[in-house]
Design a protein around this nucleic acid. Structure first.
Length: 429
RNA sequence: GGAGGGGUGGCAGAGUGGCCGAAUGCACCGGUCUUGAAAACCGGCGACGGGAGACCGUCCGUGGGUUCAAAUCCCACCCCCUCCGCCA
């Protein structure tokens, strides 16, 4: 959510910045809502103040010895006049406040200056490359062919029997490698990058989803539970982990907060029919190790660079070639002010595919969820900046390993860094 | 599932109809003292919205209600704790 004061003061500048992401901010609508709000606010506050004064007067009269009924009679007329108008004014003030809140909740975050202009992923700008795309001395198979050929490997048909399209079953060595990847990533972030591992609920209420920005606009992307309680399957650990700070005031000496968390993620993929239907690139259920940070505002730019580096470190240890791109305005997520995507090399597609997304949300999420810290310089609670990134999407990491580490005989070499997590196993056959 | 207790400022905790946005303690900030620090003492110190400001309004888990007046009384819901039962 944007700061309403900023919108009043710098409406035009914000509108211009938002146009970079293809969003047209209706400043006239805002101005008229805000004017209406102010009018209703002032009027209802006057009435409330008058009413309060009259009530106090009754108390004072009684105390000075007047009979209760007599004291009430003194103000009866005033109260009657006020009451006639008050209910209406308060109700309309409330309604307009709510309208403004909904209006604000529907505006995406303002892209930073560094975000390049552009409409879609084709306009994203490469920042750096790491490693050299592997050239295999044979025709590379894609991860589906590699995985299905393994002894106990990938099985999409049985997954479909259980749950339909976009699910997978893994077994044997592949299932173990999948689990090993999670362990490997969590250990790395805890031991080397200074994150605290957390375990969180996989079902959350609507308030948490409003806090991070999935609701109210993107309900169709979520799986909603049946039952008397309104609960949703999390689409990413970002939701429960970032909301740990909701409605809290963090002490400065406990910051920055850095959390790493493994969860399954559930996405309806409502808007992506026909895209990536083959294999496990785009699934309704997948595992992800997430990094989340809550930092002082002046530290968030540097924190994004560091966090992105932490995600990159996983690929470096696994020796998987990748590149980092900065998302253009049109491709930027709703709540983000700046996002780096990390894309891993897939030999079968001869291109880089997204495996991580690292974002700085600045105070956009924290304002929605009222996540604050006590600034020692001012003594006041101020909004924190939040960031997160995948480090990494586990399923896609597995895809990248299957493709980049495949051998001509159909076996898959286990990346060296992963072997300690797989009891020394060197090959999947 | 049954019985009871409870949700108040950053934390702890008082407050059972008007003088309460709220005692007190801790924490925090400023000052005195001190070579410095600690201690002691003095003062300050909730959040949000509006206003140039004086100020005004809202907020005591949430939502309704009673009343001229609600943290305080009534109703519903949510959450937490204790005991019993059940259970991975």
């Amino acid at each position: 959510m944007l700061d309403i004061r900023a919108l009043r003061q710098d409406g035009e500048a914000i509108k211009t910045a938002l146009s970079k992401r293809g969003y047209t901010l209706d400043l006239d609508a805002f101005a008229s809502l805000d004017a209406k709000r102010k009018q209703a606010d002032i009027r209802s506050q006057e009435l409330q103040a008058d009413r309060k004064k009259a009530s106090k007067q009754v108390g004072e009269l009684i105390k000075s010895g007047m009979a209760v009924e007599e004291a009430k009679a003194q103000v009866a007329d005033t109260l009657q006049t006020i009451d006639a108008e008050l209910d209406r004014e308060v109700a309309s003030a409330k309604a307009i406040q709510e309208d403004i809140r909904e209006f604000l909740m529907g505006i995406p975050n303002v892209p930073q200056d560094a975000v390049p202009a552009g409409n879609d992923e084709d306009d994203n700008v490469e920042v750096r490359q790491w490693g050299t795309p592997k050239v295999l001395p044979f025709e590379p198979k894609d991860h589906v062919d590699v995985g299905e050929a393994l002894d106990g490997g990938l099985d999409f048909e049985r997954a479909a029997k259980l749950s339909g399209a976009r699910f997978s079953v893994m077994s044997g060595g592949l299932a173990r490698m999948h689990r090993a990847l999670i362990d490997f990533m969590l250990d790395m972030h805890s031991d080397e990058h200074g994150y605290q591992e957390v375990y969180v609920p996989f079902l959350v209420g609507p308030e948490a989803l409003r806090g991070t920005g999935q609701l109210p606009k993107f309900a169709e992307d979520l799986f909603k539970m049946e039952g008397e309680r309104e609960l949703y399957l999390i689409p990413t650990a970002e939701v429960p982990v970032t909301n740990l700070a909701a409605d809290e005031i963090l002490e400065a000496d406990t910051m920055p907060r850095r959390y790493t968390c493994h969860t399954p993620c559930f996405r309806s993929e409502a808007g992506s029919h026909g895209r990536d239907t083959r294999g496990m690139i785009r699934q309704h259920q997948f595992e992800k190790v997430e990094l989340v940070q809550m930092v002082r505002p002046e530290e968030s730019d540097a924190a994004l660079e560091a966090l992105t580096g932490h995600a990159e470190a996983v690929l470096q240890k696994l020796d998987l070639p990748y590149r980092v791109v900065i998302l253009c305005g049109g491709d930027l997520g709703f709540s983000s002010s700046k996002t780096y995507d990390i894309e891993v090399w897939l030999p079968s597609q001869q291109c880089y595919r997204e495996i991580s997304s690292c974002s700085n949300f600045q105070d956009y999420q924290s304002r929605r969820m009222q996540a604050r810290w006590r600034n020692p310089e001012t003594g006041k609670p101020e909004l924190v900046h939040t960031l997160n990134g995948s480090a990494l999407a586990v399923g896609r990491t597995l895809v990248a390993i299957l493709e980049n580490y495949q051998n001509e005989d159909g076996s898959v070499t286990v990346p060296e860094a992963l072997r300690p997590y797989m009891r020394g196993l060197e090959r999947l056959k």
